[in-house]
Simulated assay, not measured.
Amino acid sequence: MATTSAIEWTEVTWNPTTGCDRVSAGCDNCYAMTLAKRLKAMGQARYQADGDPRTSGPGFDLTLHPESLEAPYHWRKPRIVFVNSMSDLFHARVPVDYLRQVFKVMWDNPQHTFQMLTKRSLRLRRLSPELDWPPNLWMGVTVESAEHVSRIDDLRRTGATVRFLSCEPLIGPLPGINLDQIDWLIAGGESGAHARPIEKGWVDEIRDSCLDQQVAFFFKQWGGRTPKANGRLLDGRTWNEMPELAAG
């Protein structure tokens, strides 16, 4: 099963797992945790297991959904697919064998472009040699502040063909960011009732680093009460750059 996405840099979401746990400040206002609570109240079967209240929440316990693995085989047209918008596939409780199954699905469907994000970059790096990396997978890490730039080094040491950064929610500056071996960078402000402010200077610096280091730059949003509250324009234009898609 896939769900059409409102996320500007993808087309559909596909969740072979759901649920997660907080690992850093970027998780503090997690949209997925809030959504899982709502889906649990609506009776959605995939969101009935509650996570640890200290790190997770109602309906957000890490759960495998092997029945979802068949979905990409049935999509007729090529799609850009965000894998695990409601989870983190490199969560410690996701078995390596299950990771391999997800990777096989991507190998078997080269017409699609799969995008995957994690904050658990250490496990990503350690498991990389045990995984058969499909060329149509874009692997990314979240870097919400300078405190977590080490995740970029972990990403560089993986077997991913396309590597990208999600600097969203951007909650601090990233001065002098090294984008060696990085193909794409997404930046954006936080949204929601408790959105933390973003400063234009932080975005300008990141954008300029991408231009200097020839990295595709995508500015998703300024954020605010809602994702679209303050628009997407940066210096009078939208920034929608992306790597080359998988062959359809």
Results as ranks from 00 to 15, higher is better:
T142C: 06
T113E: 15
S166T: 04
L122S: 14
V105W: 00
P173C: 08
S128H: 06
R157I: 00
V149R: 15
V162I: 13
Q111S: 09
D108H: 03
D154E: 10
L127R: 01
W184R: 02
L124V: 08
E70I: 11
R151E: 01
Q101L: 11
G172M: 04
D154H: 15
I182P: 03
E130L: 15
P173V: 01
R93Q: 15
S121A: 10
Q115E: 10
R76F: 13
E190P: 07
A146V: 03
P78D: 14
P135T: 12
L89S: 06
P66W: 00
P135K: 13
L117P: 03
V102D: 12
P72Q: 09
I171T: 09
P78C: 09
D97Q: 09
E144N: 05
A146D: 15
M86Y: 11
L137Q: 05
G159S: 11
M106L: 09
D108S: 04
V96K: 06
S191R: 03
S87W: 13
I177P: 08
P78V: 10
V141C: 00
H91Y: 12
P129L: 03
L89R: 00
R76N: 13
L179F: 12
Q111H: 13
C167W: 01
L89D: 11
P72I: 05
Q115F: 00
I80Y: 07
Q115M: 14
M116I: 03
D88M: 05
W107N: 13
S191D: 09
N136K: 06
D132Q: 14
L137K: 04
L174Y: 13
W107T: 15
S150H: 15
H91V: 11
S145G: 01
D180P: 06
G140H: 06
L99P: 10
I171A: 02
L69F: 00
L127Y: 03
S68Q: 15
S85A: 15
Y98R: 00
L131A: 10
Y98M: 06
F82A: 02
V102Y: 04
V105K: 06
E144R: 06
A92V: 14
W138F: 01
Y98W: 08
G159V: 01
W133C: 01
E147R: 11
S85V: 01
A160G: 10
W133Y: 10
W138Y: 11
V81S: 05
C167I: 10
V96N: 07
E130V: 07
L185I: 13
L131Q: 09
V96T: 15
T118W: 04
D183Y: 07
V105I: 12
I171L: 10
L127W: 04
F164E: 01
A146T: 02
N84V: 06
G176N: 12
R76G: 12
E67N: 07
N178I: 08
W75D: 12
L117E: 05
M86E: 08
P134F: 01
P134Y: 00
L185P: 06
L124T: 04
T118S: 05
F82V: 05
P95L: 08
L127M: 05
L137T: 07
G189K: 03
S85D: 09
L122R: 14
L155W: 04
S87P: 11
